[in-house]
Design a protein around this nucleic acid. Structure first.
Lengths: 161, 161
DNA sequence: CACAACTGAATTGCGCACAACTGAATGACG
DNA sequence: CGTCATTCAGTTGTGCGCAATTCAGTTGTG
């Protein structure tokens, strides 16, 4: 198997450029399309992700949402507050463990799911991508992500030489 | 070809969830790995992208960097100011067109390229991904990005029905 | 030439991402 | 039982990403 390390310096830096840039660009392009599609719902892309988790798995503590989205409280706390202000969720201190805060869908939050079904349809119509392509893309992304996550855990391979 | 629109609602929302989430997660995982690998250079990931552009294409106006990275002045202006503070670039008003600002590598900025060659090697070593995989991933990402960019231009398909 | 339209950077404001820290609540252990 | 480590949310600070605006400089048009 050919790895990056075996390439000459020129190509090395160039390919790295292309890959990290194209991923960066793809994420932002997706964000842009979702931003437009989500305008009707008055949700940002990360807020939509949080709502998807709640719609799919029901009421759950902040901790759990963070695990599913791989986001920490520094990101989630203000985000969930905004969703609460918008009337889509309530946040309640858990009774059995007062450190924990349970996030619950309100009527309005649950009802929004109906209108949210329109979003993937719009994305699909806009891009015209095939399910097979998207599934393949997803598989590849997940492979890369788990490789990167594993690497991040073992920092020695990154910092040291 | 099967498109998302032809799937039942349940799977639709679910697959959308998976795809937009996995892309989001992959971008952040990449960011995390680069953050560690770039710590030595005192560069953030987007700053590294800007430096890559300068190393590859030489001194150029802010406008041009923005085109290459698809970033606007709202993002680039403060970023380039930080690179200037760090002593890696200089920003000079163009003589022939005083609206334009040319970004030039300093000695230190040009010299940093040597040490930056270590970065993709670290990424490669950390992930162990094959060049063929990465090339394929890049191709797929670029396909998706151009599809999304095209869709974003024609907002009607996203906002209206 | 004068005035309108446009262009390139910069600034402001908002939200997300992450690191570092705080603080309260819980659990483990001597 | 009391202390100490851990856990969960929240806060603070920094930087990115984008929309909207500002402003100087340039270009096009009558």
């Amino acid at each position: 198997m050919t790895t990056l390390s075996e390439l000459p310096d020129e190509q090395l830096l160039r390919l790295d450029h292309q890959i990290c840039f194209s991923l960066h660009a793809a994420a932002r392009a997706f964000g842009g399309v979702y931003r437009v599609a989500l305008k009707d719902l008055d949700l940002t892309y990360p807020q939509y992700l949080a709502m998807l988790v709640l719609w799919e798995h029901g009421d759950q503590p902040v901790k759990r949402i963070g695990e599913r989205l791989r986001l920490d409280s520094g990101t989630l706390s203000p985000l969930l507050k905004r969703l609460e202000t918008a009337g889509l969720v309530r946040r309640e201190r858990s009774v059995e463990d007062e450190r924990s805060v349970t996030v619950r869908l309100t009527e309005a939050g649950a009802a929004l799911r109906e209108r949210a079904l329109e979003v993937p349809r719009r994305i699909s119509r806009a891009t015209g991508l095939a399910v097979s392509d998207l599934t393949e893309l997803r598989a590849m992304l997940e492979r890369v992500t788990s490789a990167l996550d594993a690497a991040a855990t073992d920092e020695a391979t990154l910092t040291g030489s």
